[in-house]
C-alpha cells in the first residue's frame, strides 16, 4: 500500500467518524423534550362509548367535511377497522376482546381513532417546512401554505394518522384531526367531545385530566385496568384512553415511551451545531489536497504542463 492510498483510507476514516458523531446514547441526554408545558388534552373512556358515531358526524360538521359516507345506523362499518381519512378525521371501530357477559354474549369495545396530538410529535419534527406544528395549547396543526406534499409526515407518524389527498393533481393537502384548534383557542370544546351523548370524551387541561383520571381508576378498579394509554406513549400524547380491556386487544399499538424524534434530532443537532462537522471535513480535505495535489489549488503552470497533453485535434 503506498502512501497516498494509506492517506486516502485515513481520511475516509475521518469522514466516517464525522458522520458517526451522532452517537445516540450521548445524544439522548442532550436533547430536551419539546412538549409545551401546559397543553389541553382529552381522555376517552372506552367503557362509556357505545359506538353511536355521533362524534364522527359532529367532527365532519365542525370541520366542514361532507357528512360521513357510511350511514349512522349501519352498524357493520364498525367492524371494518377503518382508519382516519381525508373525508373523516375520526372513526369508531369495534373490537371484541374475548370477554363474555352474563348472557354469554361477546362484549364489544368501541374505540375512537383520531390524531393523538403527541406532546413531541414525529410528524412535526419530520415535516420539511414546519407545516405541521405543535401549538402551545396542545393541538398539532397543519398549514397548507407551507406544505410541499412530500408525505414524510405520513412516514413518521407512529399512529398512522395523517391522510393525503392523492386524488388532487396539483394542490393536495395532508388531512387530519385538528383538535378543533379554533374552538379550543376560544374556550370551546372539540366538536366530538361536545357532541358525545355518553360523555365518553373528557376535555381539559392535560395535567388536571391525568390527576382526575388516576383517581377515577383507583376508585373503580373493577371498571378500569390500571393504565392510561397516552400518558407515556411516544413521550406522552394529548389524547388519552382508559379501558377495561387490555389495550393490545383493542387495536392499540405497543409503543416506546421516548419521543420518536429523539434519535434523528439528536444526530442532526450533533452534526450540524455550528456546522462543525462539515467545516472540519472541508478543512481536512483541503489540507490533504494542499499536501498531495497542490497544483489543483495553485494552478502552477509548470506543474500543469507535466500533465499528459495529447490528442489535441480539433473536434468540430
Amino acid at each position: 500500500m503506498n502512501i497516498s492510498r494509506r492517506r486516502f483510507l485515513g481520511v475516509a476514516g475521518a469522514m466516517i467518524t464525522a458522520s458517526a458523531a451522532g452517537n445516540p446514547k450521548h445524544a439522548f441526554a442532550t436533547r430536551k423534550p419539546k412538549a409545551p408545558p401546559n397543553p389541553y388534552g382529552c381522555v376517552v373512556d372506552l367503557t362509556a362509548c357505545v359506538g353511536c358515531r355521533t362524534c364522527e358526524q359532529a367532527c365532519n360538521r365542525v370541520n366542514h367535511l361532507p357528512p360521513p359516507k357510511e350511514r349512522l345506523d349501519d352498524r357493520t362499518v364498525l367492524d371494518q377497522k377503518r382508519r382516519p381519512s381525508t373525508g373523516a378525521f375520526t372513526v369508531i371501530n369495534r373490537y371484541y376482546s374475548g370477554r363474555h357477559d352474563q348472557q354469554n354474549q361477546l362484549v364489544p369495545t368501541y374505540v375512537k381513532v383520531q390524531c393523538m396530538h403527541c406532546q413531541d410529535p414525529a410528524c412535526a419534527s419530520a415535516c420539511i417546512t414546519g407545516a405541521l406544528h405543535k401549538q402551545e395549547n396542545g393541538a398539532v396543526t397543519y398549514d397548507k401554505s407551507k406544505c410541499v406534499g412530500c408525505r414524510y409526515c405520513l412516514v413518521a407518524c407512529p399512529f398512522q394518522i395523517p391522510a393525503y389527498e392523492y386524488f388532487d393533481p396539483l394542490s393536495p393537502r395532508v388531512r387530519k384531526c385538528t383538535f378543533c384548534y379554533d374552538r379550543i383557542s376560544q374556550d370551546g370544546r372539540p366538536g366530538c367531545a361536545a357532541a358525545c351523548p355518553m360523555e365518553a370524551i373528557t376535555f381539559g387541561n392535560r395535567k388536571m385530566l391525568l390527576e382526575v383520571t388516576r383517581r377515577k381508576i383507583a376508585a373503580n378498579p373493577m371498571r378500569y385496568i390500571n393504565k392510561i394509554y397516552g400518558e407515556f406513549e411516544v413521550g406522552g400524547t394529548s389524547w388519552m384512553y382508559i379501558s377495561k380491556e387490555p389495550f393490545e386487544k383493542l387495536g392499540f399499538l405497543t409503543l416506546p415511551h421516548y419521543p420518536m424524534p429523539h434519535l434523528t434530532e439528536t444526530i442532526q443537532h450533533t452534526i450540524f451545531s455550528y456546522m462543525w462537522a462539515p467545516i472540519t471535513l472541508f478543512t481536512i480535505l483541503a489540507g490533504v489536497m494542499w499536501k498531495i495535489n497542490p497544483e489543483q489549488i495553485n494552478h502552477d503552470p509548470e506543474l500543469h504542463a507535466q500533465q499528459p497533453q495529447h490528442a489535441q485535434e480539433e473536434y468540430v
Binding site: C127, I128, T129, Y164
Partner: peptide, 17 residues
C-alpha cells in the same frame, strides 16, 4: 403532491427535519 411548492423549504427552514 405540490410540485410547484418544491422550493418552499428554502423559505421555511426546519432544522429538525
Amino acid at each position: 403532491g405540490r410540485s410547484w411548492a418544491l422550493p418552499k423549504p428554502i423559505m421555511f427552514w426546519q432544522g429538525n427535519s
